[in-house]
């Protein structure tokens, strides 16, 4: 399911002294089956953009196309619900949305709201509890008795159990420790690969964007300033700096190395493995590159 924004503008509190324009003529296409990363400095409009992806906000100008549904400022609230079934959002600190007396019911909340049968919803909940590596017996526990990391997983399971076609992730690993962070990011990547799920990651981590995404959107001052594969986006560090963004550590290390070695800048190394292979090739070792 493709998502496209055409000349989208969004103004908060229009017509009051507190009016603020958050999006400005945004034209963005997120291809079906892609893993798209949206990056931008705080206040660049990326969270406003995110809320347009499943009709939580309606554009004050322009059109948002989600599959074959159109959202404009005239769209009625009722027409938005089917969109929300197809596009699931994992918000930042999603554990804050837990409310049910036990984990099972909380995960079933989304599916039931979208008309999934009780039995099926329960089956899905149990399946996702297991898939997210939560310990046995978690289903009957109160979500508020779990550790922070487990609460995060339960909340994520609650969105995945809706089985959306598109999954939007807003800083899904904020506040987790390194091991937890990697497990969760790897899980999302697996889902993307196995189910061909369109994945949209809003992140501050250039490393995550480089490692997982195949397409990127750069936001700045409420506008989409650059779109393309990570290899292109991270090739020009100077331009990113103008938008107050950096490059992944692998790329900054690579550039440092190239500069000292008197080499022209090569294609950016997006993962540590790629960087090691690149260095090995240049040093005439490993991978048979010499």
């Amino acid at each position: 399911m493709d998502i496209a924004l055409e000349q989208v503008g969004y103004t908060y509190a229009a017509g009051t002294p507190f009016q603020k324009q958050a999006l400005h003529d945004v034209n963005v296409r997120i291809p079906s089956g892609s893993y798209t990363a949206i990056i931008g400095h705080t206040g660049s409009g990326k969270s406003t953009l995110l809320q347009h992806l499943n009709g939580l906000l309606k554009p004050t100008a322009g059109i948002v196309r989600i599959g074959d549904t159109q959202v404009t400022k005239e769209t009625k609230g009722k027409q938005l619900k089917p969109i929300r079934r197809k596009v699931g959002i994992v918000f930042q600190f999603p554990e804050h949305q837990l409310f049910e007396e036990n984990v099972l019911k909380d995960i079933m909340f989304g599916p039931l709201n979208f008309g999934v049968e009780e039995e099926e919803a329960k089956a899905r909940a149990l399946r996702w509890i297991e898939r997210l590596g939560l310990p046995e017996g978690t289903a009957e526990k109160s979500p508020f008795d779990l550790s922070g990391g487990q609460m995060r997983r339960v909340a994520i399971a609650g969105v995945l159990a809706m089985e959306p076609d598109v999954l939007v992730l807003d800083e899904p690993t904020a506040g987790l420790d390194p091991a937890g962070r990697k497990e969760i990011m790897d899980l999302f990547y697996e889902l993307h690969e196995q189910r061909d799920m369109t994945t949209i990651l809003v992140t501050h981590s250039m490393e995550d964007a480089a490692r997982y995404a195949d397409h990127m959107i750069v936001m700045h001052d409420g506008m989409d300033v650059l779109q393309g594969p990570p290899g292109e986006v991270f090739a020009d560090a100077e331009r990113l700096a103008e938008w107050r963004l950096g490059v992944p550590r692998t790329v900054s290390f690579q550039r440092l190395y190239e500069e000292g070695a008197g080499l022209p800048p090569g294609p950016p190394a997006l993962t540590e493995e790629q960087l090691a292979a690149y260095l090995a090739a240049d040093l005439g070792k490993g991978g048979g590159a010499s």
Partner: peptide, 8 residues
């Protein structure tokens, strides 16, 4: 560590 695996 990764470089070590590549023989560096």
């Amino acid at each position: 560590a990764l470089l070590g695996e590549q023989g560096i």
